[in-house]
Design a binder for these strands. Structure first.
Lengths: 191, 191
DNA sequence: TATGAAATCAGAATCATTCTAGTTTTCCGC
DNA sequence: GCGGAAAACTAGAATGATTCTGATTTCATA
């Protein structure tokens, strides 16, 4: 499928751009680096940079943007029998994104960069939110509802907001559990 | 407080900019209008335009951005005795934002413009989200919890997401109720 | 009315992004 | 292995938002 030299070089260039961007952003800050500098570092022209990353500067470091679209929907579809939709989503999220415990320093640096840069946090959120449709479909299929059901769409959206909402907490895992408990049981007023 | 000629002129200029922007955006589309054109229409220089609207082109049509920060928090604080926090929020939201029923054509046009323009929808969302802190404080105060409690923050965030989530639905009011029911009772799996 | 703060301006400068038009590379059927 | 089409690449110009600079004007007020 993706076995031509062409495809290989393309992927390689995209990776070089992402690596150059992460390195330079980490060193000089997002606003301290121009796309021209990144293009130079990756040894391509500015036009080529934009050909590879049409979404622009924000998107440079996200070499994997598409994958997330399927993680959560797949987690719902392939959950073990008897496991609830929410439980499957909770487990899937706990391993990915900002919640993974010990990361190689490489990825840790990148995660901190995203969390500490509004523009990148924002773009990261957009990537998550883009999965709303597929996730809503999976949830609907799993629970015998319509994908357009507002309750289904709201649940999908709320789950997808969790990384941005809980990702910057002191204890992300605990925050993750707290939010899932809220979604599972609803808001219990007590005052 | 705000009774000098200076203040009056300032507010007037800000309003002229907002009106010019709404008119031109509605006529030529967001991308079909340059800030230079808007400045010209409002008879100010580009530099002055940015002095009045530091957040840039997105923010031009939102002459009232600050007010929303207090609506919802106030609704929680001033709710009638015995009314739940969620009920107060539901009622407040139902009257504001995209959920208001019959609007003067003026405001209806503006609402449609926002809903139909990604950049404006996005900025509108940012305005809502900016109220998360105050709203979380109000909720915490009303229910005897900490404002930093993840459950409180999550509820505040989720309520604030509702306009963007449900605002574009065919029947926004019904969608609003569906989402509030989800927040109130939690996700009831049934398959 | 004098004065300092705030508002205004024109124009240059930066930067992301897009466009143009021409060059090079890779692929693929022959 | 060869010829051309498709895809990728490039330099450089153009556009548009945003910021900066360095005056100039207006306002509030002592």
């Amino acid at each position: 499928m993706t076995t031509g030299r062409r495809e290989r070089k393309k992927a390689q260039t995209r990776k070089s751009l992402a690596e150059a961007a992460v390195r330079l952003f980490a060193e000089h800050g997002y606003d301290g680096v121009t796309v021209a500098r990144i293009a130079e570092e990756a040894d391509v022209s500015i036009a080529t940079l934009f050909a590879h990353v049409p979404d622009g500067k924000d998107a440079l470091i996200f070499d994997d943007g598409d994958e997330r679209h399927v993680w959560l929907a797949d987690a719902v579809r392939e959950r073990p029998p008897g496991q609830s939709v929410l439980e499957a989503l909770r487990r899937c999220l706990a391993e990915r994104g900002p919640f993974a415990g010990d990361l190689p320093p490489e990825q840790r640096r990148k995660r901190d960069l995203i969390v500490g840069t509004p523009a990148l946090r924002e773009y990261s959120r957009r990537l998550w939110i883009a999965a709303e449709g597929p996730l809503a479909e999976a949830i609907a299929a799993a629970t015998g509802r319509e994908p357009a059901d507002m309750t289904v769409r709201a649940l999908a959206r709320y789950v997808l907001e969790i990384p941005e909402l809980a990702g910057a907490e002191p204890d992300p895992r605990a925050a993750l559990d707290a939010v899932f408990d809220l979604l599972e049981s609803g808001w219990n007023e007590r005052a």
